[in-house]
Amino acid sequence: MSLILTPNIPDTDGLYQELVEAHDGLSAEESEAFNARLILTLANHIGDRDVLRQAIEVVRKSSGGNVQN
């Protein structure tokens, strides 16, 4: 199976809001820990090593393009 990179979430705006709000009140450290737990939980749900490998690769390549202030 290929990693899905086209829109795939029925309610993108809702999910985005939920993700951001989940971090409300968390310190930077707590946020990092939260994200790590979320990644591990999602990775287990996906369960497909190929898909996960592709995702890591896609994210690795997408970094470095940050807008510098």
């Binding site: 990092e32 820990a33 790590a36 737990r37 990644i39 591990l40 939980t41």
Partner: peptide, 14 residues
Amino acid sequence: TIFRDAALDLARDH
């Protein structure tokens, strides 16, 4: 360390 501790935190319940 963050991932390790995340796994430990989750392991309690899952």
